[in-house]
Nucleic acid binder design. Structure first.
Lengths: 154, 154
DNA sequence: TATAAAAACAAGAATTATTCTCAAAAAAAA
DNA sequence: TTTTTTTTGAGAATAATTCTTGTTTTTATA
């Protein structure tokens, strides 16, 4: 792995990212410092960093993949919102028990990596959906009462 | 959900599938009985069946998604081979402990669904990789010995 | 330090899985 | 039976990612 200006800044910006980042978001951030950089370079580097184990790639459904600089302190449990696609780390209180069990799974299955994902509509999206539902019901009531009136008039 | 010939056969073929199936594979199977069917219909039906909970969609990396008819007897642990993309169910001996823990996670995190995936190169691919490696080493030795000879001749 | 070899780059074309559109057909409801 | 709703086939459109090409940069070697 050669040292290039591009790679250095990609890594720096990936570490700086507050949460999980798509290749495109990273591209836009890196572009501030290297206006000539191309999206292909971002993808190429992310792949290299993934395969040497310093970056984790998370992809759900057929959305943009999201990347994170692996932090040994952070666990590997993620939540994914199927509405907006947001990914977040999940902390779990009884993590010791979980840790032990995961270790058991590793041993028994000889897996290279284990992913534990919670599919869960995030609060933002839940609220948005509730509002939508209310509007839909109102519209339906409106429609029905119109038909009723029309039938009476006949 | 209307009853259509297409939907019936899609469901039948999905249930018949030995393992996890891509939309395209399913398309080819259904086409044997309904030559006019289009891939869009497959995708549309799979989406409907997923959202009513009778089908599970599994997608890794940016590959074709794979679908399975949900079998309550089978657990939700899957293995995924990053080389060939194959997905399989995983049986885990201490599954009771796991079950309990997952339940705990459900309660604590309010997740709608939990996915536990083992990333693991399958045996087929492991063998193929080993062979490749041997060939690469042989080629490298060949190259080096040629350079050595050439230098001596000089 | 000069030169050769390997790795990485930018730009943009190509690929690929999936979704969308639209007019026609089929199914269900009235 | 008629109307409404749902579904379909065909194919265009989309969107994320990968690939290609010629060039530049970095590292290894002499």
């Amino acid at each position: 792995m050669n040292q290039t200006e591009q790679r250095k800044i990609i890594i720096r910006e990936l570490k700086n990212a507050k949460s999980h980042t798509t290749a495109e978001e990273l591209f836009n951030n890196v572009k501030k410092f290297l206006p000539q950089i191309s999206l292909g370079t971002i993808y190429r580097n992310l792949e290299i960093l993934c395969s040497n184990g310093s970056v984790r790639k998370l992809s759900f459904e057929h959305r943009k993949a999201q990347f994170e600089w692996k932090n040994p302190a952070e666990n590997f449990i993620h939540s994914y919102c199927p509405e907006c696609g947001k990914i977040a780390h999940v902390s779990f209180s009884d993590s010791e028990k979980l840790q032990n069990l995961i270790l058991e799974i590793y041993n028994e299955t000889e897996a290279d990596e284990i992913k534990l994902d919670l599919i869960k509509v995030c609060n933002c999206c839940k609220e948005a959906k509730a509002e939508q539902l209310i509007k839909a019901i109102e519209a339906e009531n409106e429609r029905k009462s119109k038909i009723l009136t029309w039938n009476k008039d006949k």
